[in-house]
Amino acid sequence: MYATPISELIDELSKLPGIGPKSAQRLAFHILKTNRAEAERLAEAIVHLKDKVKFCPVCYNVTDEPVCEYCRDSRRDDSVICVVEEPKDIVAMERTGEFQGRYHVLGAAISPIDGVGPEDLRIKELLKRLEDGRVVEIIVATNPNIEGEATAMYLTKLIRPLGLRITRLASGLPVGGDLEYADEVTLGSALRGRREMP
């Protein structure tokens, strides 16, 4: 229907998440209308992303430096590692401004039904980081869903014998929410994790 270069671009764009054939068509025609410099910037940005961004060899965050900014920063606390599923979760944790330790990205969560097991996660790499004895606490910040919980239980089973403190992010009521709309699992977990008023 369209000239080959246009349909090729539509094909590629429609492979992106959340982009259907109609959106892909709109994007392709938008790019066609923009000037050459702008189109080149987009093309270059994509190529740069693939060329420059690598996994940090320490924590497996994504980075364009040899080691990521959180592993490089000498002011951060070496004795605590916060374990997350995805690099995006580091950004979420950093937004709180409440955590000053190091990170470790597992890359996935355990889910037997989907065929994802411990060997598909960067668990060996995490255990390696615990060998020098500097780390005293592991904060498991995997998602509060079934896969995240299973991963947390598995990590606890592995790490507890090493004598480290292992903690899990609290789960409970969202700030600004209404109690009556809380489901019983969440509310139960909030009740078990209640704390003394300061």
């Binding site: 037997p112 039904i113 079934i146 919980e149 299973a150 239980m153 089973k157 489901d183 699992v185 139960g188």
Partner: peptide, 26 residues
């Protein structure tokens, strides 16, 4: 929720066997 079966989710062993049951039904 009628039954949450959270006891299965909170126990790694039960979770593993329960996963096989659910996958089979799926």
């Amino acid at each position: 929720i009628i039954m949450s079966f959270k006891e299965i989710r909170a126990d790694l062993e039960k979770y593993k066997y329960g996963s096989v049951m659910l996958e089979l039904i799926d």
